[in-house]
Write a protein that binds this DNA or RNA. Structure first.
Lengths: 173, 173
DNA sequence: CACGGTTTTCAATAAATACTGAAAACTCGA
DNA sequence: TCGAGTTTTCAGTATTTATTGAAAACCGTG
């Protein structure tokens, strides 16, 4: 009877810890990834104290990473009547998770890149030396590509899951 | 006469420095991104010493990041006859750059994630409690999605630039 | 408005990561 | 095989990023 619960706990602990390690590869900190994994696999919304206890981290750490996850939109605050403390629950739908992460990455990685490329393309406009022309061309090529990728990301994120899947299946077929 | 060269230098310096700052967002270190930017906009292949001088960094730093960029495939070693030292030149084609970066990210971000999800899905197979079933389902949903994304990335990376562009244009139309 | 429970802040500290510089290893022509 | 030129390594140091823990602020209730 207990073995099933044990096996589950073990699998879940493994998921939380490994997902955390993976987080660092993704440029998000370990704790944030761990909390996300924990809440994604929580049967019920959890309190800050439960998160602290489960991951053995400080209150400050739990707090700031929970807030960050809320800011991303990956988890949300839940209020229970008769309860003063806040509970947190994760978005569990994979397509939603994907679009949230895609949007955030676009914001942090693509948009600043575009801004730089724009600026440098403009600044090098009209320079007549061969080096100047080559530089300008390179900036423009990058700008076009990144701008294009950005639009793609928007379009795909805006799709309903089913539609994106259908489209992708056609692509893979 | 000199102003054109000045303007170019300024624009290029800006690009190098900003691209470096951006690199940190992308999970690659500042120096590596700067060297990449420098070489992408270099009219000629450069030596380690030229890179060191231009970015004001140590030999060790220049060396290890050049090697890393070579390992990624973003730059390559060029030997000039009659020259003992190595020169480095960057891949400048944006589609090539994109596929290289995509492949690397897949290797570092997607594949380890898949491995974890596989493992946890398997470990939680057949647990009959409601929590166990929910956990298993969640793992499988994530696994399916990530596996799918992985295949997509492969397909797109394998395309020729023109074909991908055509496809994407249809998508955006 | 005082109080217990709760959240938020933040200075101090720890941990992870990047960089330096100098020594060692390598390479090739003479 | 020697030596000048070049690449590689790596211990020590600096920088950046994450975490702690305790104090302060907040909040609803009596």
């Amino acid at each position: 009877m207990n073995t099933e619960a044990e096996r589950l706990k073990q699998a879940r602990d493994e998921f939380v810890s490994q997902w955390g390690a993976l987080g660092t590869q993704w440029g998000i900190n370990r704790t944030m990834a761990q909390i996300h994994a924990l809440l994604m696999t929580a049967p019920q919304p959890m309190t800050t104290d439960e998160v602290m206890e489960n991951l053995e981290i400080s209150r400050g750490n739990a707090h700031s990473n929970l807030k960050e996850l809320v800011a991303w939109g990956l988890i949300r605050v839940v209020v229970k009547k008769g309860e003063r403390r806040e509970f947190f629950e994760a978005e569990k739908d994979v397509w939603s998770i994907f679009t949230i992460v895609a949007r955030e990455r676009k914001r942090r990685e693509i948009e600043p890149a575009l801004a730089i490329l724009d600026k440098c393309a403009t600044e090098s406009e009209g320079i007549e030396t061969p080096e100047g022309k080559a530089f300008h061309e390179q900036m423009r090529a990058l700008q076009d590509f990144v701008g294009f990728a950005s639009k793609m990301a928007d379009r795909i994120s805006a799709m309903k899951h089913g539609f994106a899947l259908q489209l992708a299946t056609k692509l893979l077929g």
